[in-house]
């Protein structure tokens, strides 16, 4: 890990079943401690990229190194045990379990009671909702509350890096802000974050670095605030209200 990168992807290709490639040669490096925001139009392959990193989708070609170790093609439970957590798009609580049981499931791989207790306390300190709603059935919480439970659950193993896929999608503004704050707190505590965000302005403002994905490749990568000023990013992604309005590249364009 001489490079200081926690996560490095090289020429990564992946797709579903017998369909065509969705990831078409992703090259991306993320430094230890970074808070990176990945933006891009719908269908660009952002979720697929996160799923491929966490092992839910098998790469067809290329490499993924996490802290110097090749993880491409590992089962998701193996990747998680190495300290890389993934909060997927949409709801991903265990809906019929209590909030408390949900968070405990995050410690499924931990067998040391003392460490588990310690982590529980940390999770409760960062996400007070866990204590406040502990006996409530998770499926009945609001979307924002469920997201916080999912995030608390993801921290239970002391993950070094967390992938978050559009965690604010569908949340009301206040809940969105809480989720963004929690991500920043996590990052401040030393966890590297890769965030996929459909609202480019919010995402790039909250993060340190950013990158833009289009048609299964990383098109731009750089300092978040700088990207916000980039004329092309501005034109494509920061149009009306910062949502993505121009997902279609010119026809016939071949990205080398």
């Amino acid at each position: 890990m001489s490079s200081g990168n926690v996560l490095e992807m090289r020429q990564l290709f992946a797709g579903y079943g017998s369909g065509g490639d969705i990831l078409r040669g992703v090259d991306l490096q993320i430094e230890e401690g970074d808070f990176m925001c990945l933006i891009g139009p719908n269908g660009a392959g952002k979720s697929t990229l996160l799923r491929t990193i966490s092992g839910l989708v098998k790469p067809r070609q290329g490499s993924i190194q996490f802290r110097g170790q090749e993880i491409g093609g590992l089962r998701p439970d193996r990747v998680f045990r190495l300290g890389l957590a993934h909060v997927p798009q949409g709801r991903s609580t265990f809906p019929d379990m209590s909030v408390w049981e949900n968070v405990l499931m995050g410690a499924y791989t931990l067998h040391d009671r003392r460490i588990r207790q310690e982590r529980l306390e940390q999770a409760c300190a960062m996400f007070p909702i866990v204590e406040r709603q502990r006996n409530k059935v998770a499926g009945l919480l609001s979307g924002g509350e469920q997201k916080q439970v999912e995030m608390a659950r993801a921290t239970m193993t002391g993950a070094r890096m967390i992938l978050l896929d559009e965690p604010t999608l569908g949340l009301e503004p206040r809940a969105s802000r809480t989720v963004v704050e929690k991500m920043q707190e996590l990052n401040a505590s030393g966890v590297t974050i890769l965030l996929v965000e459909q609202n480019a302005r919010t995402g790039l403002a909250a993060s340190r670095t950013g990158c833009v994905m289009e048609l299964g490749r990383i098109k731009l990568q750089g300092h978040g605030p700088t990207l916000l000023q980039d004329p092309e990013v501005k034109r494509l992604y920061l149009g009306q209200g910062g949502t993505m309005t121009a997902p279609r590249p010119p026809t016939g364009q071949v990205v080398a």
Partner: peptide
């Protein structure tokens, strides 16, 4: 309850 989420907390 949620196969994907289970895998993502380390369940085989």
């Amino acid at each position: 309850q949620n196969r994907t989420a289970a895998q993502l907390v380390g369940v085989h």
